[in-house]
Design a protein around this nucleic acid. Structure first.
Lengths: 385, 385
DNA sequence: AGTAGCGGTGGAAGCGATTCCACAGGTGCG
DNA sequence: CGCACCTGTGGAATCGCTTCCACCGCTACT
């Protein structure tokens, strides 16, 4: 096959200079209509395909954003990622995604990103980054934004996990619960962020505020994931005096708790209230009360911010905090409440009748079990953050 | 700030040639230990950062794979994607991901991928691609692999959706169901693939094989998503003579069906059996009987195949078909079965006791409701594909 | 001793655009 | 008429690396 044609050959064939061809290619500059048409014709005639690399090198920018995410398949992570990607796409950036599952992987990729002309900016989602790596990135002058992870001085979009933990726990306390368990992945985060830790701190702080003693035997931590959480919850529920409520550090883990309750025949919410965190899609499907954080929005905001940094703008404040809301659904109730004594959660305006039925007659039939597939818009109380 | 240092300055400072620096950088060729050490020292001393673009251009390859996915956040899609990315990462490729939500977006990106030095290969997941785009990619000589989508002549990893639809329907027929509904997104695929269509065909073929008349009033299609499926299923269940079973074209949609049943007080599986498709994580959590396809494996196989193509190897056969399995869980039973008359699904060896209890005593308590949080490994019958 | 071969190295020739500078030719205005 | 300016254009310089070829000493055969 003939050596592939480059811009010079196009120029020659069209009887113009390379500069003109380049201008046609980039649509931008002033080229007369006739010249443009001629060049375009030659381009298709020769089957010319411009070199992305050469253009990028010459331009001095790859027009690419690198995104580092741990555990891509986790619902909360992928939603943030998708949000960010939408923005980058709209801004004309390619996004190269690094899904890291180990710290070695994370460090290797982070290090590779300090190369010149690698990425115009780096977005890190839900992963903590060691100082040295931050310094390396900073030293290389590469714009960096983090979402859902803390690092002093770094541009970031975060939610207040401690406040979230406090809200969730307070919700349970307000319902009258006193023995409240915690299921999380503190100490098992892997490459993931440390948010469970802060949610646990919020839990403790809420207990403290309510004058309830902290009972460390009600706190269980293990690897992330519904299955692991299920085992942990089972341990909790099998205790002589089990908790009447559980706060799980993520919806995924809360789903595991629901599973354990179901398997052990513990009625939710009548014998056990469960609160999750994140408000992933499944939470609505399962009728799970949870603390909602704006996942997709965190992605778009982080991406917007990174784009601004890449353009050289200064963004303030460095640390943007997103609001939290409690979404009350069917997995929480007063301790030992009788089924009819309460509302199962909020009612979507458009659905009042069926929801109502579900919360009353319907409820009686499934006395004491997880109203597993309840769906509700949920009452949203803005968090006092 | 001083102009950033390039390979030439490093070479000069180290008293060597640029070739030698390059060799040190790429670790590959033969450089004496002393020279290497000297060069390395100079590199850190000057804070030299090699240019990714220049290297790629010179090399003639960006070492990048482009992945096009529709609806990134769908569980089945993200699992395939993650599987593929693992392979590309291990092979040293960057992956640039295009999440497309409209055909315009898809076509725009696909077209941009025909540029030279854009991507060494293209992987398309769960999205159909028009002939013209395939031709353009082919004409540009860019290796292409598709996962979960058909296109004549294109290297692809697929599962037999029609067979899957047949298996799912046969499972219900074998249990004794005769009025079997179908919930899918045929005609509402957007940028997504057409697999629901084939699953519907399989459904019809199974009915046909069993001598059951096809009743089009039992077939409902709408946009993908649990919520939409819930509304469709509600319509189905409110009919004067509702179906005794429903086959949903995806687990997500099946979850919607479960939600509708729950809301209408229709007991699953006693009054309604439900079968999904894909075996996403949530299926196990919800005790959903489903047709499993190896999602992650489809990703890794597709990626392996693309890597081979990029290396210039010939891969045969062009179309690789993956096996399907039925996973029987708690959402299916004989029509109008009494609660105690059946096993709720398979029992994990390590869990026999609690599962058993759940399937018996436990079950009685929640008589007739969705065993929503059942978890089971599931009986796996290899599909006769 | 001559020569083949090899480890180690220098450096020029690409790779293929973008972009800036220079310049031609036309137009408008004083 | 002459000058300033504007549009459209050609083309050299530039981006920073990889790679190939040539070459230098040596060692190890024949």
């Amino acid at each position: 096959m003939a050596r592939s044609v480059n811009i010079g050959e196009v120029a020659r064939a069209a009887g113009v200079g390379t500069g003109t061809v380049s201008r046609v290619l980039n649509g931008s500059a002033s080229v007369s209509a006739t010249t443009r048409a001629r060049v375009l014709a030659v381009i298709t005639a020769l089957g010319y395909r411009p070199s992305h690399l050469a253009a990028s090198l010459s331009r001095g920018s790859p027009r690419t954003i690198a995104i580092v995410v741990p555990y891509l398949t986790r619902p909360s992570v992928v939603v943030r990622l998708a949000g960010a990607m939408t923005v980058f796409d709209a801004e004309g950036y390619d996004t190269v995604v690094f899904n890291v599952e180990t710290v070695e992987q994370r460090d290797r990729h982070l290090e590779s990103l300090t190369a010149r002309h690698r990425a115009d900016g780096v977005l890190i989602v839900s992963a903590p980054v060691p100082r040295t790596q931050l310094a390396a990135l900073g030293g290389a002058g590469i714009p960096l934004v983090m979402i859902d992870s803390e690092a002093p001085g770094v541009n970031r979009i975060v939610a207040d996990d401690a406040a979230g933990g406090r809200i969730a726990t307070s919700l349970l306390l307000d319902l009258g619960h006193r023995r409240i368990g915690f299921i999380g992945d503190v100490g098992h985060e892997g490459v993931g962020n440390r948010s469970a830790r802060n949610r646990l701190a919020g839990y403790r702080s809420a207990l403290d505020g309510a004058g309830v003693d902290y009972d460390r035997s009600l706190v269980r931590n293990g690897p992330h994931g519904a299955h692991s959480a299920e085992l942990l919850a089972e341990g909790l529920l099998r205790r002589p005096s089990p908790p009447s409520a559980v706060f799980a550090a993520s919806d995924t883990q809360a789903i595991g708790v629901l599973g354990a309750a179901d398997r052990l025949g513990v009625a939710v919410p009548d014998e056990l209230s469960v609160v999750g965190y994140d408000d992933i899609d499944a939470a609505a499907l399962l009728g799970l009360t949870t603390v909602r954080q704006p996942l997709e929005r965190s992605g778009t905001l982080g991406a917007d911010r990174l784009c601004a940094l890449v353009r050289g703008e200064v963004v303030r404040p460095v640390r943007q905090r997103l609001p939290l809301e409690v979404v009350t659904r069917a997995s929480t109730a007063r301790p030992h409440a009788r089924p009819h004594a309460r509302r199962a959660g909020a009612v979507l305006a458009t659905r009042t009748s069926s929801q109502e039925r579900r919360a009353r007659g319907g409820r009686a039939a499934i006395a004491g079990t997880v109203p597993a597939l309840a769906r509700s818009g949920g009452d949203s109380h803005l968090a006092p953050t």
